[in-house]
C-alpha cells in the first residue's frame, strides 16, 4: 500500500520537533512493533527496552535522522537491529543471535494463544498454533508478509536475506502450514481448499 505521501509529511513534521507527530507515530505503529518484537524473542523486558530505546533515540536525534517514505519499514528495521544487538549483548554463547533465530523452533504456547484477542475464532486460533510450530524464521516471514504487508523486497532487506531465501522460507512455511492442518484432520472449508 502506498502511504508514501502522508508518511513523509508526518515524518518531517516529527523531525521538526513536533511532539504530537511523534506521539502519533508511536500510536500508529506500536501495536505492530510489539507484536513483531514478540515474534523475534519472548524476552518481554528486552522488547520493551528496545522499543523504548528506539523511540527515545529517534526523538533525541530527530534532526539527524534521514527522510523516509515508509515509516513502518524504518521502524521495523531499526527495531529488529536493536533487538538482535541486545540479544547478542545478553548472550554468553558463542552463537550469534542470527543463527539462534535460524535454528530455534517456535515455542508458541497454547496459553499464549488463548490469551490472544478475545474475538478470534477457533479457526484463527488453530492457524495461530500451526504458525507457532514453524521455525522462527518462517514465522517471521509469515508475519511480515501477511500481517505487516511488507513486500518481498522489504522483507529481504529487513531479514538480511536474498530474494531466493525469502521465497523459500515463505514457500516452505505455507506448505508446512498445509501439512500441519491436514494432519490434524480439521474439516473446515478453508482447510479443504488446501487440498486442491
Amino acid at each position: 500500500m502506498d502511504n508514501s505521501g502522508s508518511d513523509m509529511l508526518l515524518w518531517n513534521t516529527f523531525r521538526e520537533g513536533n511532539r504530537d507527530a511523534f506521539a502519533r507515530i508511536y500510536n500508529i505503529y506500536i501495536n505492530d512493533l510489539l507484536s513483531y518484537g514478540y515474534r523475534i524473542t519472548s524476552n518481554r523486558q528486552l522488547i520493551k527496552d528496545s522499543i523504548q530505546d528506539l523511540f527515545l533515540h529517534l526523538w533525541l536525534h530527530r534532526e539527524n535522522i534521514s527522510e523516509t517514505d515508509s515509516i513502518k519499514y524504518y521502524l521495523f528495521r531499526s527495531l529488529r537491529n536493536r533487538i538482535i544487538k541486545n540479544i547478542e549483548k545478553q548472550d554468553t554463547q558463542p552463537q550469534t543471535a542470527e543463527s539462534i533465530l535460524e535454528n530455534i523452533i517456535g515455542d508458541f504456547s497454547v496459553e499464549q494463544v488463548l490469551m490472544a484477542k478475545e474475538t478470534e475464532s477457533e479457526q484463527i486460533i488453530r492457524l495461530q498454533k500451526a504458525i507457532g510450530k514453524l521455525s522462527k524464521r518462517q514465522q517471521e516471514v509469515i508475519q511480515l508478509r501477511y500481517h505487516d504487508d511488507f513486500s518481498l523486497e522489504e522483507i529481504e532487506n529487513l531479514m538480511k536475506l536474498n530474494n531466493q531465501s525469502v521465497r523459500n522460507l515463505l514457500h516452505r512455511a505455507i506448505s508446512q502450514l498445509r501439512i500441519t492442518i491436514e494432519m490434524a484432520g480439521w474439516s473446515f472449508p478453508f482447510i479443504l481448499s488446501f487440498l486442491y
Binding site: 518484537g37 520493551k48 508475519q143
Partner: peptide, 27 residues
C-alpha cells in the same frame, strides 16, 4: 482470499496491551 485474510490475523503475535502505555510513559 479467505486464507490470506485469516493468515493476516493469525500471523499477528499476541502481546500485552499494558506494554503500549508502559513504554510510552518511559519514553
Amino acid at each position: 482470499r479467505e486464507i490470506v485474510l485469516q493468515l493476516s490475523i493469525a500471523s499477528q503475535m499476541s502481546f500485552d496491551e499494558e506494554d503500549v502505555n508502559d513504554i510510552w510513559q518511559k519514553i
